[in-house]
Each structure stands twice: as C-alpha cells, then as structure tokens.
Design a protein around this nucleic acid. Structure first.
Lengths: 167, 167
DNA sequence: TAATTATATCTTGAATTCAAGATAAATTTC
DNA sequence: GAAATTTATCTTGAATTCAAGATATAATTA
C-alpha cells in the first residue's frame, strides 16, 4: 500500500500515540481534518469576498437574501436560524449592512412584531457579482480533485453531516 | 439510484439553481458541508470539554502542551503556529490559563527572547482526564458510521486537506 | 375582554479574536 | 564591536460574537 503524505493532523495523532498509547487517538483524525479544512477553505473564500468589499458574514447574509428569490426579503429570524448565529449577532450584522445601503428594512405586513429585511438594488447587484466570482473561485480550488474524488468527498461529507444534523 | 436525504446544504444549492441556473452551484456543496460539519462537531466536542471546566481553546492549548511530551513545555510561538491563531490571541489565552494555575511560564534557557510555557501538575491532571473523555466522546459521535465509511471519509478529507495546506 | 403565554427583535456587557505596532533580545553585517 | 536586521512576545484598539434580559406584539385561555 502506498504511503500517504503526512499532514498536520497525522502529526497530532502520532504525538498522542506516543504519549497515551491506550487511547484510540485515530478517532481524532476525522474531526481534526474537518476543522482544519474548514478554517483553510474559509480563508480562501474570504479573499474573493474581499474583492467585492465583503467579509464572510456579509457575503452570507446578502447571499441568503438573494437566493431566497423575489422579493429578496426575509425576517431576521429566518436569517439567523439559517446562518446559525444568535439574534443579537444578526441585529448587529443588519445594522452594518443597512448603513452601507446594501439592505433595507420594511415592516412585515403579516406580523407587526417582525420586520422584513430586503436587498436594495445596490445590494442585489453586488451579491450577484460576488457570487459569480465565488463559484469561479470554487472551481479553481476544487479543480485539482478529479470528478470522482469530488463525488466521493461529497458523499462522505453528506453522511457525517446528516449524522451531526440529526443528533 | 436511491434518493439521498436532503440536508441543509442541498436546500441552498437548490435555491441557487432556481435563481442563477447558469452558475455551477453544485460546487458549493463541498465547502458548505465542510463548514457546517465543522460547526456542528465543534459544538458537540465543547460539551465534553465543558464537563472539565474547559472551553474549546483552553482544551486545545493544554492538549498541545500535553502531547508534546515531557517536559510538557513549548514556546508561545510554537503554540500559536500550531493552533493557527495570532500571537496576540495566544498571549491572552496564556494569561487566562496561568491565572487558573493550569500552566506556568519559565525562562527559556536556550533563548532569552522567548519564554517557555509548561503544564502545571494540575494542568497535566486535568487535560489527561479531559482527553480520555474526549476520545470516548468521539467514539460515540462516530460510531454510527461503519469502519469502512469512516475510512472513506478520512481518505477524502486527507485529499482536500493536503490540497488546501499546499496552496 | 383581561390575563397569560409565546414569538420576534433589540440592547447590553463580557469574551474572544485579529491587525498593527511596540519592546526587547539575538544574530548578522560592515 | 557598532549598526542593522531578524526573531519572539506583548500591548492596544477595533470588530465580532454570544448569553441574558428587555421590549413589544400576537395568540391563547379563562
């Protein structure tokens, strides 16, 4: 069997094997690689977002509104649930995006307790350009993997994600 | 072919397909699942760390010192490089752990510019107990996957991680 | 209808993080 | 050996986040 290249996580697992041989330290590989991959890939994506004057969360909020479809508006509750942040965080995010003129707030005709957040024309134009660049960036990042490798990775991630989402 | 269960990322990809059919939005699946899995798994791990009075980063720092082996000491530079945080963040972390008596700082006999950070006896005992519980927690989390599925996931993650680490 | 409970959002304060720059010691160059 | 550069760490200030609680409206129950 061909040796695989050691990565940062292999080193961690090896250290634990030396220090605590009775532990099943191999188990640390999967969560370790998920965390590290996540940090590295987010860093790469941020570079493209920055070309459009957006950081990660700003892209996330605008993209969530954009892909919701016309009228490109959602209640804050829908936004923070989707994006896995607290309501306080969302308030803060919306304040910043509103000040920049990328979103606007309107009253919700169906529920006076809630507001609706909508993309402005400027916000719409910006996120549409940014998401085009984003998918081109993803093509670059993933292109070294074969079609088959991408499929295998996606299938495997699907299993662990559904496991994590259920529990 | 059997239909797979839709997850949160499938919904996002589907929305983009409706709104921007010309984009290759399938590409969003892999980074989306990595990010979401990472957030969910970290949340699960934190629960175990909390049983030992530790949050994620406190566990990380103590574990890094522990697995380095005797004398369980490293320079701050080694710590923040390994843990992918800035030096300022590490200063802050070390201050907190020192105050709690889990680490101590000593002069570095080999380089007067740097300090050495070492586990105290108390820190050593705590992280050893916590890491035992941590691996038991990982067993619980991963046990619904077959041995084979775990291997496939790990292989696939290895490929993407080495890709991301190289670039 | 009045009181209670649930829902939606915002406010506040503390914790965590980073970027940029300050400080201090070691190393290299002249 | 003095000056310049590099290395290691810490300090500061701003940004981001969350938890807890405040506020306001809606829905439910008595």
């Amino acid at each position: 069997m061909a040796d695989k290249k050691m990565d940062a996580v292999d080193l961690i697992v090896d250290q634990w094997k030396n220090e605590r041989p009775e532990l099943n330290s191999e188990l640390m590989g999967i969560p370790g690689r998920i965390k590290r991959s996540s940090a590295l890939v987010q860093h790469k994506l941020e570079k493209t977002f920055a070309e459009y004057g957006l950081n990660y969360w700003e892209f996330d909020v605008l993209a969530t509104l954009r892909r919701a479809g016309s009228l490109y508006s959602l209640a804050p509750t829908a936004l923070f649930s989707t994006l896995m942040v607290t309501s306080g965080t969302m308030t803060h995010r919306l304040k910043g995006l509103e000040k920049r003129g990328l979103i606007a707030r309107t009253a919700n005709p169906e529920d006076a307790r809630s507001m609706l957040v909508e993309l402005t024309e400027e916000g719409f134009q910006l996120i549409d350009k940014a998401v085009t660049a984003h998918t081109e960036n993803l093509e670059r990042i993933l292109s070294p993997l074969t079609e088959d490798e991408q499929q295998q990775l996606d299938n495997a991630l699907r299993k662990i994600l559904s496991l994590l989402e259920d529990a």
